[in-house]
């Protein structure tokens, strides 16, 4: 077996797998988003019929239309779901950054022996089931939950706060679930930072605070950007958190897609929602990939 052939086989196997199970499915989603709902099995029309030859194929293409997308723009439910996803994902990303940065900064400033322990403590919840971590918050946030009991006990409030089934619960859930994704990239940039740069800045007359603004923060920017992408992009399409913590009033794209598919059995509309979400996320995803590749090049 020649080296050329060997290389070809090595590249082909994972490549074909991803083409078949990652890329091809999107083309099918695109096709179904252009189809019409039908009471049939599967519940959409037209179906591609190869037995009729070219006539069947052209007939198939002539029946595709943008009806589902028109439907999305006409019904305010979908626009609201989109805007609300955008708002919830953005606010959660900012909140996660505000909590993660001091944490990562504190971790980077401990001695080597403590650092590996702290890194493990951040990674541990990330390995723990997502569903279980969201479930844990139901017990805390509901009306007779721990938070309300605690606040009632301290006398700060006289009747339970309604936090469950509100956007606040969704913010808490997203920030909590995605916090490790924000902490780790920021920590890894801060940890690599050359401390003598700070000393130099202070020697040259910077105050501690302005040294932080002028030296530490700019150096941490790649980590901050990576962390924000890692939180924002999946949060936009999040289903479990808004479904379990947000109740019926919190609209989000991921939840809308799920309902259209499983409850309404409207596959074309569910596919159209997926395509819209994907179109919106393509730009941040490409930026994220560039960022990762640049970091890999730098690590070489």
């Amino acid at each position: 077996m020649g080296p050329g052939l060997r290389r070809f086989i090595l590249i082909s196997i994972p490549y074909l797998w991803l083409l078949l199970f990652f890329l091809a499915p999107f083309l099918i989603v695109l096709k179904i988003s252009l189809s019409d709902t039908a009471i049939a099995q599967p519940p959409y029309l037209p179906l591609l019929d190869f037995s009729k030859g070219v006539a069947g194929i052209s007939d198939f293409f002539s029946k595709l239309d943008f009806e589902s997308f028109v439907w999305l723009t006409e019904d305010s439910l979908y626009t609201n779901a989109f805007l609300s996803s955008l708002k919830i994902a953005s606010i959660s990303t900012v909140l996660a950054l505000l909590i993660a940065f001091p944490l990562a900064y504190g971790m980077a400033r401990t001695s080597d022996r403590w650092r590996s322990l702290f890194v493990m403590l951040v990674i541990l919840p990330f390995w723990t089931s997502f569903l279980i971590r969201v479930y844990a918050w139901i017990g805390i946030l509901r009306n007779e939950g721990f938070l309300n009991q605690f606040l009632l006990w301290t006398g700060l409030i006289s009747e339970p706060l309604q936090i469950m089934n509100t956007p606040t619960a969704v913010y808490i859930g997203i920030v909590y679930s995605y916090l490790p994704f924000m902490v780790l990239p920021i920590y890894s940039t801060l940890e690599k930072m050359d401390e003598s740069l700070l000393e130099a800045a202070i020697d040259l007359g910077c105050s501690r605070l302005s040294a932080f603004w002028l030296v530490t923060l700019p150096l941490a920017v790649p980590g901050i950007i990576a962390g924000c992408f890692l939180v924002f992009i999946p949060a936009m399409g999040e289903f479990v958190i808004p479904d379990l913590l947000g109740g019926s009033t919190t609209l989000m794209m991921g939840k809308t897609l799920w309902t259209e598919f499983f409850s309404n059995r409207d596959w074309p509309v569910a596919s159209a929602v997926a395509i819209m979400l994907l179109l919106f996320l393509v730009v941040p995803m490409v930026l994220f990939q560039r960022q990762l590749e640049r970091q890999q090049e730098a690590g070489r």
């Binding site: 590249i11 083409l19 990652f22 989603v29 399409g237 289903f239 991921g254 990939q289 990762l292």
Partner: peptide, 19 residues
């Protein structure tokens, strides 16, 4: 290829599942 490697890391699960 590298796009198909990195995209699933952040792809919303509902989209992957549905497709």
């Amino acid at each position: 290829f590298s796009g198909m490697i990195y995209a699933p890391l952040v792809m919303p699960e509902v989209i992957t599942g549905l497709s």
